[in-house]
């Protein structure tokens, strides 16, 4: 690297810096941070999960600890609070960190403990989207999608495509706690490359729906059984543009939905049965992945999943 402006060594002005460590802005900087953190975690006994490499697990036979890494947001949970405290001390000896105590806010999601379990909300995030879209005083609607179908239209392009992409991108992150808008967001996402006025109307429809449901949250309830239930569905030739079908799945762990997806299928199904089978196959793959994840999390006695 070139020597930084203003701090060039006066005796060796033509020398360059050989970097031993990564700097912000380098292509490999995120990877270097991840390697640094994961090496440390592995050295203190954590094991990286094979199915999700950002999940680290520490187990000593009786106690078990999970550590989730989202770049520099770290969530640590475990069955023994004294050892948990010790782990935080270990981490802070290596990295400069702030212990935020009990989780209230993770990745922009408000976490609230209720008597029945945990409530996840993105209330503030929804209000931010409403402000960004200039729709804080809009009239709420009861459904996320209007019945009319969207299609690619060569005329009437939307005046500000960048804004369209920004708002839709913001909505995509909202599906973290709002499976109800998953289908609607996926639909408008398919027109990101060439948005038109009618697509913008569909986006506004979603935002008006959110206005009415902004304070709704996602409730994770307690339970004793450890069972996975998967549900899949598909339409047939739902897309006007290319006759492809839209499929989706929703997987419950106990009474809580854990994983969901809605998306256009890659193949053109020639029968509705084929479209349904395709959705079933995608849903099954997800359930199998979740089963591996549960095994890694050392959850005991998982009964056979139903789909």
């Amino acid at each position: 690297m070139k020597q930084p402006s203003g701090f060039v060594d006066p005796t060796l002005p033509s020398h360059v810096c050989r970097l031993h460590k990564s700097l912000y802005g380098l292509k490999q900087a995120p990877r270097a941070w991840y390697t640094c953190l994961s090496d440390f975690l592995l050295s203190i006994g954590f094991i990286a999960s094979k199915v999700d490499t950002s999940l680290f697990i520490l187990s000593d036979g009786t106690n078990i600890f999970y550590l989730l890494v989202y770049v520099d947001d770290i969530l640590l949970t475990g069955s023994n609070s004294a050892m948990l405290h010790h782990l935080v001390q270990l981490l802070s000896s290596e990295f400069k960190l702030r212990d935020l105590g009990d989780v209230h806010y993770f990745l922009g999601i408000e976490v609230q403990s209720t008597g029945m379990g945990l409530m996840l909300r993105q209330h503030k995030y929804i209000l931010d989207i409403l402000t960004r879209a200039g729709m804080t005083t809009c009239k709420p609607v009861d459904t996320p999608v209007s019945p009319s179908k969207l299609a690619i239209q060569p005329d009437h392009p939307f005046s500000d495509p960048t804004r369209f992409c920004q708002i839709v991108g913001a909505l995509q992150y909202l599906t973290f706690t709002h499976p109800d808008i998953c289908f609607a967001v996926n639909k408008v996402c398919q027109y990101m490359h060439a948005p038109t006025d009618s697509h913008w109307v569909a986006v506004k429809h979603i935002i008006r729906y959110l206005k009415g449901t902004a304070s709704y949250g996602f409730h994770i309830t307690r339970g004793t059984s450890f069972a996975l239930h998967g549900f899949t569905d598909a339409d047939w030739a739902g897309s006007i543009d290319d006759c492809k079908s839209t499929g989706g799945y929703l997987v419950f762990f106990r009474q809580t939905p854990i994983s969901w997806k809605s998306g256009k299928q890659r193949i053109v199904a020639r029968s509705s049965t084929k479209a349904e089978y395709k959705a079933l196959a995608d849903g099954t793959a997800e359930v199998i992945w979740l089963q591996y994840l549960l095994t890694d999390l050392q959850v005991p006695s998982i009964s056979a999943p139903t789909i």
């Binding site: 380098l26 292509k27 490999q28 995120p30 990877r31 941070w33 991840y34 999700d52 490499t53 950002s54 999940l55 999970y66 989730l68 890494v69 989202y70 770049v71 969530l75 949970t77 993770f106 990745l107 976490v111 379990g117 945990l118 996840l120 973290f176 994770i220 309830t221 307690r222 339970g223 004793t224 997987v251 762990f253 106990r254 809580t256 939905p257 854990i258 994983s259 997800e286 979740l290 994840l293 549960l294 999390l297 959850v299």
Partner: peptide
């Protein structure tokens, strides 16, 4: 020359929800 691998994993949303779900029980 300057870099080879740049991929850096982040946690999946489903994993976060599943861990939360196990943590409450």
């Amino acid at each position: 020359i300057d870099y080879s691998e740049t991929f850096s994993p982040v946690i999946k949303q489903a994993t976060v929800r599943l861990v939360f779900s196990i943590a409450v029980s």
